[in-house]
């Protein structure tokens, strides 16, 4: 009996285990192949890069757990970037700017949530429209030109360090921990799995399904906002095209992490392993001077392999 249980448990952790193994493999192989790889400078670099995709992927996990998708996150990054750029140029206090950016992103989240949860739009279509609108807003607002950011405190969000750790990495960690706790240790988090697995049954069990759906889009938009702040601070400018295509990398990380696009099944630890793996891999390929065109091919194949392993281990049907 016990043995069987262990086997079952083993089956369910197998894909997670495989991801960890791949991550360790990359680290092992790379520390042989490249003398630069294991240096603290490179590691800092990797994690600073990961933080951008990672934060968006964490927010995206909530949406995908519902079986939905949020394509608008990249555009929200762009809007946040130009709003920050403009307001900071006018000399507004950095903290007020962050709050305004947060408010703006929440408007986008509520907009998506209203379309999907209350007006029954399909998530793909709704957020595709928001993506287009958002990018348009960013371009119109800035007239297509970048703003220059000089505020030193604001810039620290993207460029600063606490001790030896870059601030973006600290923010990433904080976002991961907070979201992990919400998803796994609160009743609210449990509702995401239930609604994603069977919306009707969840509703009959008293779950306010529309509110849950709405909050997923808000969480996703807030994560995009945080990335917008970090990115603008890091490049010291408000760019209308900032965040272009970020939604796809985030979705890739979530998929590699084993969260089902049909909703109901998945985990944040999976997503975390997913974006760490993508980050390590692209850094490794850069160090090995692999052409970026080939890097894309590798990334695509990786998604297929990871999702395949995951499906195999879950679909114990035969």
């Amino acid at each position: 009996m016990n043995l069987n249980l262990n086997r079952q448990e083993f089956k369910s952790i197998l894909p997670r285990f495989a991801l960890v193994a791949v991550v360790l493999l990359i680290v092992g192989v790379m520390s042989f192949l490249s003398p630069v790889f294991m240096t603290s400078k490179n590691m800092t670099n990797i994690f600073r890069q990961i933080s951008i995709n990672g934060i968006i992927a964490v927010g995206m996990t909530f949406v995908i757990l519902l079986g939905d998708i949020d394509l608008s996150v990249g555009a929200v990054v762009g809007v946040v970037s130009v709003v920050c750029g403009n307001l900071l140029e006018q000399g507004m206090n950095w903290f007020a700017v962050c709050l305004i950016a947060l408010a703006v992103s929440i408007v986008f989240g509520v907009f998506n949530g209203t379309l999907v949860a209350y007006l029954n739009f399909q998530p793909f279509v709704a957020t595709l429209a928001t993506l287009t609108i958002g990018r348009g807003v960013a371009l119109a607002y800035s007239d297509g030109r970048p703003y220059i950011i000089n505020n030193p405190i604001f810039k620290a969000i993207g460029q600063g360090y606490v001790g030896k750790v870059p601030i973006p990495v600290i923010i990433l960690l904080a976002v991961c921990v907070i979201c992990y706790v919400i998803l796994n240790y609160t009743t609210f988090g449990r509702y995401f799995f239930a609604v994603g697995g069977n919306k009707n049954a969840a509703r009959l069990s008293g779950v306010k399904t529309k509110k849950v759906e709405m909050s997923a889009y808000i969480i996703s938009a807030i994560c995009a906002c945080i990335v917008g702040l970090i990115l603008s601070a890091r490049i010291s400018s408000g760019q209308p095209n900032a965040g272009d295509g970020y939604e796809l990398d985030a979705i890739a990380a979530v998929a590699i992490g084993g969260t089902s696009m049909n909703g109901g099944v998945g985990s944040l630890t999976g997503t975390m392993l997913g974006f760490v793996m993508i980050g390590l891999l692209s850094n490794s390929m850069n160090l090995l001077n692999i052409n970026s065109f080939y890097q894309q091919i590798v990334k695509g194949c990786l998604i297929i392999i990871a999702v395949y392993v995951d499906m195999k281990s879950k679909g114990d049907k035969k």
Partner: peptide, 27 residues
């Protein structure tokens, strides 16, 4: 309407009773 397939027996039985097993929303 009754069950969420793909989730455990525990989560299903607890779904409409989470208040009983949580304090201030923490499970």
């Amino acid at each position: 309407l009754g069950l969420v397939f793909g989730r455990s027996i525990r989560e299903n039985v607890a779904l409409q009773n989470l208040e009983q097993v949580s304090t201030a929303s923490f499970l």
